[in-house]
């Protein structure tokens, strides 16, 4: 056998094989990162002990959403219609600590690790929707309320640690801020006025 120069394996088909694999992975995999609003549901209540917990009227901020996706916001006795764009500021105003003001929720002094004695609002946001409310509206309302809490936490974290809440790394600091400004959103069983 006479050799003529260096022999080369024909690698032209290699690219095709790699392309096939690539296309297979493109089709069968997804890239989307799951994001969303995380909430905790209340534990189930046994039917025999369903007495309502008494919360003082001034401590409750009611948000009602009807089947036409309209909002009614305010205290138990004094509600007014509101646009979704104003909801965040209203919720923030309600949850912010206003000592000695009977218009706003009660406050209590709390000893929190890392912060010392802090005045904590006892305010609770009560949200109720109709079975006919659209899911989109529900999420928008949840989003605005979450934004209100997040902004209050940011303000507090800025004041104590000079950072935004999401940028905090210290476990203790995160726990402390969470305790000082809890996510006080309760959901009532939906009504069925507008129908499904």
């Amino acid at each position: 056998m006479a050799r003529r120069g260096a022999q080369e394996i024909n690698a032209g088909a290699m690219a095709d094989i790699a392309f096939l694999l690539l296309i297979f992975f493109l089709v069968t995999t997804t890239m989307d990162v799951d994001r969303g609003i995380t909430r905790k549901l209340p534990p189930p209540v046994p039917p025999e002990q369903q007495d309502d917990i008494d919360v003082k009227e001034r401590n409750v901020f009611v948000v009602l959403v009807n089947s036409a996706d309209r909002l009614l916001v305010g205290s138990q006795t004094n509600k007014r219609p509101m646009d979704i764009t104003q909801l965040k500021d209203a919720a923030k105003d309600f949850l912010r600590v206003h000592p000695n003001n009977p218009e706003y929720p009660e406050v209590e002094e709390k000893q929190i690790d890392g912060l010392g004695t802090v005045t904590v609002s006892k305010g609770v946001i009560s949200m109720q929707n109709d079975r006919g409310t659209s899911y989109n509206m529900y999420i928008q309302v949840q989003n605005e309320l979450a934004a209100a809490v997040r902004e209050l936490r940011d303000e507090m974290a800025m004041e104590y640690y000079g950072k935004k809440f999401n940028d905090l790394k210290d476990e203790v600091a995160i726990k402390a801020i969470q305790e000082a400004i809890p996510v006080a959103i309760s959901e009532a069983e939906p009504q069925n006025v507008g129908g499904d």
């Binding site: 929707n129 109709d130 079975r131 659209s134 899911y135």
Partner: peptide, 11 residues
Amino acid sequence: VDKDTKMGIVS
């Protein structure tokens, strides 16, 4: 959940 779904089924 689809955004146009009514809250009834979600609840």
